[in-house]
Design a protein around this nucleic acid. Structure first.
Length: 189
DNA sequence: CACTTGATGGTCT
DNA sequence: GACCATCAAGTGT
């Protein structure tokens, strides 16, 4: 049993998927770039939205792996996740930053005043630049509007604690492309 | 660079 | 009523 998209098995643990996604190209309606920062969230760990069980907000994390999970953050921003399924329980990967490569003009329009380095550097900024809304929730990642293209598997990946959470802060489940200037925050060595 | 604060509303107890 | 998987703009060092 497996669900493979762009060479990645979305039935693997979310921390494995999160690491493998670094370097993968993500396009939404043909606009996007290279994934440079992700975080893993798991059913058995209290920082995850699916820790408390299925609710109207998080139902897509309990559906098939290889789909999107989109939620509203702080009443203002949208955030995009990829759903995983490790050993039958839900999990997800939060997309935190991409290196903008395709459709720069459209991303600049959506992001108004942002300079290029801040176009997609942060989960809310990324979703805004890619035009993500609730309408993109619970959609398969191997069909429209999404395009995932396998990346270079030899890239150097940094790890560190996740950002902006208050529980399970010790888990090193944030991953980033070494040397990228598009990370939402530096990694401490 | 680090830290603080306001905006703003959905979600869950 | 408390708590956010955030951002931008502000002040301080």
């Amino acid at each position: 049993m497996s669900k493979i998209i762009a060479g990645i098995d979305f039935e693997a643990p979310s921390e494995v998927v999160a690491r493998q996604l670094i370097g993968v190209t993500l396009l939404v309606n043909g606009v996007g770039g290279r994934i440079v920062e992700t975080e893993a969230y798991d059913r058995e760990e209290p920082a995850s939205h699916c820790y408390i069980g299925e609710t109207p907000r998080n139902f897509s994390m309990f559906g098939p792996p290889g789909r999107s999970y989109v939620y509203r953050s702080h009443g203002i921003h949208w955030c995009l996740n990829f759903v995983c399924r490790e050993n039958g329980h839900g999990a997800g990967v939060l997309l935190r930053a991409i290196e903008p490569l395709v459709g720069l003009e459209q991303m600049r329009e959506r992001r108004a005043l942002a300079d290029e380095r801040l176009l997609c550097s942060g989960p809310g900024r990324l979703a805004q630049a890619l035009g993500i809304t609730r309408a993109d929730n619970n959609l398969p990642l191997d069909g429209a509007p999404f395009t995932l293209l396998a990346g270079d598997q030899t890239v150097e990946v940094l790890t560190g604690p996740r950002i902006g959470i208050s529980k399970a802060v010790e888990l090193p489940w944030r991953f980033g492309l070494a040397g990228s200037r598009f990370l939402s925050k530096p990694f401490r060595q």
